Structure formats: structure tokens, C-alpha cells
Simulated scan of single mutants.
Amino acid sequence: MDSQVTTTIKSIEDMRKQLHRGKLFHGLPDDLHALIEGVEVAPATPVGLPDDDEAALAKIAAIEKRVKDEKAPQVSDAELKYLIVHLAATAPAVRDKGVFFLLSDLFQADAFTAKQVSWLFKTLQRKDILFAHITEPANDAVFLRSFAVMLLSGLVYADLNRYHLITATQFERLLVNLCAYIALERDGRGYVAGKGWAHAYTHIGNLAEELSQVPSLTRGDKLLLMATVIEGWQRMTDSLVFGEDQRVSSYLVNLATKNQFYADALVMCLTAWQKRLQHLKPKEDLAFWTRWYNRSRLLEALLMRGDLPKVVVDYLKQIIDAY
């Protein structure tokens, strides 16, 4: 496993501790920016993928049929492990419309035991899943990573509303892992021809939204996550044109409306971003202009929300000529 994953997690943990001790606030965006910019691209290594699409589709269909026919649906531990393995499939019929849809239905049906909920929560955060090949050039492991994030968002929602099994410490660990994931993820592809949705930033928005609802997480925790989402967005060199701007802006606005603290924090993060732009000169390359228009789409999506706090609206109007 890439040592950068371990060091990034440690760096996020250190920032979180500093926030809690009151030693870091205004400098948070720049510290995160430096952390993200310092991640190096690692050499590509082979990505292990399932190669039994037809058998997987048959097994998924059989589980789906059984679940629909049972009054009290259940899934075995072996079946659950099989489904998670096939979350790495590049065939959208297996991964997206198969495993993801089925697991979502199982959440809705309360089909998991307490032990299985705990296993899912831990397994989806394993380094070989959540961070699989994450520092390498764009690769097919993005589907496993991204859908692990999406399933974790469903798991958090289900726990807050039904299971009530995840502890405060476990939520804190998930928040740190998500921040590290955002800091490391460089693959912003939306829909991939022949392989379906990667959609990392839509899934990031979903999990960030669910974590913003967790009562045990502190304001400092939620600020850390907000700042990391904004810093990660700035780094993307893929065009985020598949609805990511609406999903992430929705998360940011929903958090900002919870308390004036978050509205002010959002302005702080946007100000740090704006200050960096003042020192940039346009470049005749794709990455520069992709980032520029990713920024425009996100800020426009924020302004489209009628409930955006006034302090944020006023700030965006001040900088409107800069995007």
C-alpha cells in the first residue's frame, strides 16, 4: 500500500487535533492546499478486477429474487462478501445496477444483522478498497473507491435512522478517512464510456452531506470536511460536468444554513481560493481552463440556491468579476 495514504491520514488527524485545540482555523485552507499539492503520482500497478460478469449477474439476480420473496429478507455473510468484491467490477450492470442497487435495497429492507453492519462499515474503509490505487494515474480502481464512498453514505443514513450502531469514535474515523480520500483522489471522471459512472465527487457530496447530520461530530470536524471538499474540488483536472456542482453546492449550502459559524467558514474557504487566483496567470493548457470552469460552475450553483446565507451571497457578488 502506498505510504502516501498513511501519511495523508496522519496529516488529516494532526489538522483535526489542531482545530480542536484552537491552534488552527484561518490557516486550514492553505494547510490542506499544501497537503494536496504535495501528493506525488505513484507508478501504475496492475488493478485486480473480477472477471466473472455473467456469473455475478446470475448470482445477484438470484439474491434479488429471494429478497423480494421473503417477508424478513436476509443475506448471508458469504453473499455480502461476494457483493463487495464485485463492487470493483467495471461492468456497470454488475457494479452499479447490480451490486449497488441490491445493497441499497437491502439497507431499505433492514436485511443486515448488527454484525454485518459493523463488517460493512469497517470493510468499506479498508485501505485496499477506499484507497485502492488512489495515488496512481487514472485507473479502473476508481469504481471500487468511489462506490465504497457511496455505500458508506447509505450506511451512515441507515445507521442514523434505523441501526444506531456506529459509535462517535467510528464516525470520527470515517470523517478523517473521507478527508484523506478527498485529498488523494485525482480521478474526477463522471460517466466513463463502456464502464458507467465513476462519479467520485457526487459520491463525496453524498457522504459529506450524511456526515453533516451526525450529532456527535463537532463543528471543527464539519469545518475540516467542508474545507477539504473545497480544496479537493480546486485540484480536479477532469471536467466536473455530470451534476457534481449541484451535489456539492447542495451539501455546502445545507451545512452553511445550519449555523452562522458554517456560513462564515464557507466564506473563509472561498476567500483563500480567491487569493490564490489573484497570483495566477492564465495558461494555455487544458488543466488550467478545466479548473477555472469547474470553479465557475460550483460558484454559480451556490448562487442558484435561494437559501444561501446572505454573508456568502454578498461575498460571491464581490468577486463575481473574477470567474
Rank of each mutant, 00 (worst) to 15 (best):
K222M: 06
A109G: 01
V41G: 04
G22N: 09
D314S: 13
R189T: 05
E209N: 10
H20E: 13
G154W: 03
A62K: 13
K283D: 09
A168H: 10
L120R: 03
A141T: 06
G196D: 07
I204T: 13
L80N: 09
L151M: 14
F131H: 11
Q4T: 10
G27Y: 00
K68P: 00
E231W: 01
V117L: 06
P46E: 12
S216L: 01
N294F: 07
A56Y: 00
F147N: 10
F288L: 10
E54K: 14
D128A: 05
Y201R: 07
D245L: 01
A114K: 10
E37L: 15
I166N: 02
A141N: 05
F112H: 04
N206G: 08
L277D: 01
L252D: 08
R276G: 08
E209L: 10
F171W: 07
Q116W: 07
E37P: 00
R247A: 09
K97H: 13
W233P: 07
I230Y: 01
V311Y: 07
Y191C: 00
N294Y: 06
D14T: 13
M15D: 05
K317Q: 15
F107H: 13
G306H: 11
Y323N: 12
L174Y: 02
G190K: 10
H133I: 04
L277P: 01
R95W: 11
F121P: 09
G243Q: 06
R291D: 08
F143W: 12
W197T: 08
A168I: 09
I63F: 09
T290K: 04
E54G: 00
L277M: 06
L175D: 11
R297D: 14
T123L: 08
S3R: 07
V253R: 05
A114V: 12
E136M: 14
L102D: 08
E244T: 09
A141C: 01
R145C: 12
L35T: 02
E172T: 12
V75Q: 13
K97N: 02
K17M: 03
H199C: 01
E284H: 11
G196Q: 09
R186V: 00
K122Q: 08
Q74G: 12
G194W: 01
I319P: 04
R189Q: 15
A114N: 07
M15S: 03
L103Y: 06
A61G: 07
R95D: 13
L298T: 05
E210N: 03
I319V: 15
M150G: 11
G190I: 10
V94Q: 05
L120Y: 00
T8L: 04
G190E: 12
L217G: 04
G48Y: 13
R145H: 06
N259F: 03
H133G: 00
V41S: 15
R186T: 11
L165F: 01
Y82M: 10
L175Y: 11
G232R: 02
V214E: 05
D264F: 02
L80K: 12
Y163Q: 02
T257S: 14
L102M: 04
G38M: 07
M268G: 01
Q260T: 13
L316K: 13
L240A: 02
F288T: 13
A158C: 03
T237V: 15
E231M: 11
R276V: 00
L299N: 07
K115G: 00
S212L: 05
S153C: 08
V311D: 03
G232A: 10
E40A: 15
Y315T: 05
D30K: 14
F25N: 15
T202A: 14
S146L: 03
Q108L: 03
P282N: 11
T167G: 06
I166G: 04
